[in-house]
Every structure is written in structure tokens, then in C-alpha cells.
Design a protein around this nucleic acid. Sequence first.
DNA 1: TGGGTAAATTATAATCATTCTAAATAAGCA
DNA 2: TGCTTATTTAGAATGATTATAATTTACCCA
Lengths: 141, 141
Amino acid sequence: MRDFSRAEKALKAEGLRITRPRLVVYDYLLDNKTHPTCDQIYHSIVNDYPHISFSSVYNVTEKLSNSGLILKLVSPCGEMHYDSTNCFHGHFYCLKCSCVLDLDLPDVKSFYKPISGSTTTSITISAEGICPMCSKNEQVN
Amino acid sequence: MRDFSRAEKALKAEGLRITRPRLVVYDYLLDNKTHPTCDQIYHSIVNDYPHISFSSVYNVTEKLSNSGLILKLVSPCGEMHYDSTNCFHGHFYCLKCSCVLDLDLPDVKSFYKPISGSTTTSITISAEGICPMCSKNEQVN
DNA sequence: TGGGTAAATTATAATCATTCTAAATAAGCA
DNA sequence: TGCTTATTTAGAATGATTATAATTTACCCA
């Protein structure tokens, strides 16, 4: 049995009920910085927790992202990915292998000017291209 | 009959065949800077061009965005929008009415540092929030 | 100008990620 | 421990997008 204390503490701090699907999904995200989709999360945890359902993974990621514990990212092809890091950074999406990598970026506030009369809740910076690993493989072939 | 000369010229310049669906869809995008989805494009043009099919709208937007004539945008909820403007700018997505507005932004190159070994094909900056019109309506209610 | 060929269009079916539904289960409080 | 309500679950439904295969069209060239 894994140690879910960190996940449990965070859920409690947000006033969320402690349930097994939430612990398992959130702990997986805390441990894996690969920005998985719901499908990938499901297949990664279903061995250790055979009774989990797709619905639960969708429910849990929705709940956690609404609470601000995790980030919901949308890839250039419209797939939803989840990220347990909540400090600001950008994302790089590989067009070949669909991996998602973190980008270090300066504070956005320095150049972002909101549209007059609008309210901004989040800013996203992302890049598309070929990741280092795929670039390397291309040269070989 | 509309004047499709601008659309026709652009298609020719890209070496693309001049077809009615392409002229109609591209001309619509040139005239409407509302960043519509394929569904919205279809419903906007079907009256003037009753025989157009959903497939054609999808095919045409795909072809035009691959050629660089139009931009394919993904909204925070994963919907695909299309934009005939091809100079760099950001986008603001309203969480209430789902409208998409243009954002003026400085040149990204000033702060973007690509991941070592990667190739970047495009950079995207977007913001989420409540647009000016929805903000105004909220205050009234 | 007309015929040939490859490309594009069309209508329809299929796909697939996500959401919905309703019944069963479990969390957390008294 | 029992109660109430939120959560989970399995399966069905949805809906945007993609695939298929037949028809039509664009455009090159004689």
C-alpha cells in the first residue's frame, strides 16, 4: 500500500472528502510529472486499484482541477492533460509523440494587458514542435 | 454572388485548387473575425450554399490551416476554432459565452527559450476569463 | 475546347473522448 | 453506530471529429 499522506493532507486542506479514487489519482499525479490524460491515468492505476472506473478518473480530475489542486491543460489537438504542479509555467507539446514538457517562463504580468472591461482568471503559454527525443530519432532514420 | 477574388488569389498563391467550398469557407473567415468553430462556419454558410457538407467544412479548414492561410485555435475546453488572421497575436476565451477575442501581445521571441534539442513550430499565448460584455451583464443581474 | 486523371466533395457510417444517468456504496458527522 | 449526503460505479448516451467509398470537379494537356 502506498503512502497517501501528502495527497490526503492536500485534500483535507481543500475541504474535500477523502476517498480512494481521489487518493489514488492525485497521488499518481503527484508522483508522475508526465501530464497524463484521463485515459493514461486510468491505465496506469487500474492494476493497483482494479475497481476504479473511467468515470471516477474523470470525476476526480474535474474536482481536483476545480479546487485548484491540479491544472487542466488542453493540447493543440484538444486532448485534456493534467498536471499536479500549480506554480506558473508553460508547456511544450510534441507533434510526434504527443508528450508534454514543462517550459520555464518569465512572469506573464510583465507583458499581459487585459482587454478593457474583462476579467482574467488564467493565462497560458504553450509551444508546439518536436521534442528533443523525437528530434534525435529523426536524425538517426 | 459574393466576390471571392481575395480568397481565390490566396488559394492560388498557395497552389491550392479553386473549389466552391474553399472559396465559401475561406471568404467567410476573411469576413468574420469571430473565430468560429466548424459547426458555426457550417451553419453560417449553409443558407447561401445549401449543398455544402460538414465534411467539406472540416476538410477545408484542415487544408487551409495546414497551408498556413488560417490559424487553428484550441479553446480551453478543447473546441477547435479558426482564424483567418495569420500575424502573431494571442486569444482570450470567455468562460461564459465562449467567445474568442484577439489579444495584442509583444513579440514572443524576447522571452521564449526553447528546450535544448527541441524544434518549435509555433507559440501560443492565451487567456481565460469573463469578456467585457459578460462582465457588464453580470453587474446588471 | 474536350478528355483524362487525380483531387476534392459529398453523405453516411464509424470512432472515441467525454458526459450523463441511476443505482450502489462510502465518508464523515451526530 | 446510524443517518445523510456526496461519491463511485457501470453502462448508456452524446457530440465533435474522422474515415469510407462513391460521385463530382478542377485543371492539365493535346
